[in-house]
Amino acid sequence: MEVVVVPTPEDAARVVADAYTALLHATASAVIGLATGSTPLPVYRELARRHRDGDLSFARVRAFLLDEYVGLPAGHPERYREFIRTELEQHVDFAPDAILGPGDLEVPPLEAGPAYEQRIRDAGGIDLQILGIGTDGHLAFNMPMSSLASRTRLKTLTPRTRQDNARFFDGDIDQVPTHCLTQGLATILDSRHAIMLGFGRGKAQAVREAVEGPVSARWPASVLQLHPHATVVVDEDAASQLAFVDYYRTTYAGKPAGQGL
């Protein structure tokens, strides 16, 4: 696991966008994994800027979403597929139907997980997966005590998760879906490169536990310690509890020119 500490989320966006750029220049038909929420937004905005400048094309790229609510109709503003459409897809040149979420398959929710796993395999697997870490260490909807061997599946949202997300539904918890579909932790480990982002002092404990603590279901993001090519990109505040931060700075600064993440 490589840890990269940068001053701001905007600095992180440039570092991560460089990884996307290198991948897509080398493999125009790459398969990428997309996360939602506020954490990856600076990256998506940087990718859109590079596309506008003519430096980056997504025309042959396939993309898979990490997760999706169950029960929201197509086009609902809080569907994660709609988030990606608004924040990234409409700003670049993805081909029609190039992006798929676990809620886009026309199968019952209990069958969607295995079907989604098969679609990822049929595409050749995910080359680069972007992730955001939650304050409790969750990845996607893999909350604390999720199985480290989990695959894409239907999950019941806890009352705490629904209450936390009620702010996106006019503060009304009754509007928040009770179930979701999410890639599993083992699914995430199958990606060829996983990049996890963490910003702000509120993420500091989760980042410390994920990077320097034991691998444990209590902190689901710690499973990335088992990933053969995992990169953690954090700002100064999110890195504030790391014991080995000087080591991370030294090793990143000493990387050979052009090596990338």
Rank of each mutant, 00 (worst) to 15 (best):
residue 82 E to F: 03
residue 31 V to Y: 00
residue 142 N to H: 12
residue 165 N to R: 05
residue 107 V to P: 00
residue 213 G to Y: 02
residue 136 D to N: 15
residue 121 R to V: 13
residue 200 G to K: 01
residue 24 L to T: 04
residue 154 L to S: 08
residue 64 F to I: 07
residue 234 V to T: 13
residue 165 N to A: 09
residue 91 H to E: 07
residue 255 K to L: 13
residue 80 Y to A: 01
residue 120 I to V: 15
residue 196 M to N: 06
residue 137 G to L: 04
residue 24 L to K: 11
residue 53 D to E: 15
residue 120 I to R: 13
residue 88 L to I: 04
residue 196 M to S: 05
residue 127 D to S: 02
residue 148 L to Y: 06
residue 24 L to E: 05
residue 7 P to C: 06
residue 176 V to D: 03
residue 221 A to L: 12
residue 32 I to K: 02
residue 3 V to G: 09
residue 142 N to E: 12
residue 155 K to L: 11
residue 150 S to D: 13
residue 127 D to Q: 03
residue 34 L to Q: 02
residue 155 K to R: 14
residue 120 I to C: 12
residue 53 D to F: 09
residue 129 Q to Y: 06
residue 84 I to Q: 09
residue 115 A to I: 12
residue 75 G to K: 14
residue 71 G to Q: 12
residue 46 E to Q: 00
residue 112 A to L: 09
residue 137 G to S: 01
residue 127 D to L: 02
residue 202 G to R: 04
residue 193 H to A: 04
residue 112 A to D: 11
residue 258 G to V: 05
residue 154 L to F: 03
residue 84 I to G: 07
residue 95 A to N: 10
residue 32 I to Y: 01
residue 88 L to E: 12
residue 189 L to H: 03
residue 55 D to Q: 14
residue 47 L to E: 01
residue 255 K to A: 12
residue 86 T to D: 10
residue 6 V to T: 03
residue 249 R to D: 13
residue 93 D to F: 08
residue 124 G to C: 06
residue 131 L to R: 09
residue 48 A to T: 08
residue 69 Y to L: 09
residue 131 L to Y: 11
residue 134 G to L: 05
residue 84 I to N: 09
residue 218 R to T: 14
residue 11 D to H: 05
residue 115 A to K: 09
residue 15 V to S: 00
residue 19 A to N: 06
residue 158 T to I: 10
residue 77 P to G: 06
residue 93 D to C: 10
residue 248 Y to N: 14
residue 221 A to S: 11
residue 168 F to L: 05
residue 10 E to Q: 10
residue 95 A to F: 08
residue 223 V to N: 10
residue 234 V to D: 02
residue 228 P to R: 05
residue 67 D to V: 09
residue 183 Q to H: 08
residue 120 I to M: 15
residue 3 V to A: 03
residue 22 A to T: 11
residue 172 D to G: 13
residue 256 P to H: 01
residue 237 D to A: 15
residue 233 V to A: 02
residue 82 E to G: 02
residue 115 A to W: 14
residue 47 L to G: 01
residue 163 Q to W: 08
residue 101 G to L: 15
residue 139 L to A: 05
residue 178 T to V: 07
residue 204 A to G: 06
residue 223 V to Q: 08
residue 206 A to D: 08
residue 25 H to V: 06
residue 248 Y to F: 10
residue 191 S to R: 04
residue 54 G to I: 11
residue 166 A to S: 10
residue 166 A to G: 02
residue 90 Q to D: 14
residue 114 P to M: 04
residue 167 R to D: 08
residue 2 E to D: 14
residue 97 D to H: 13
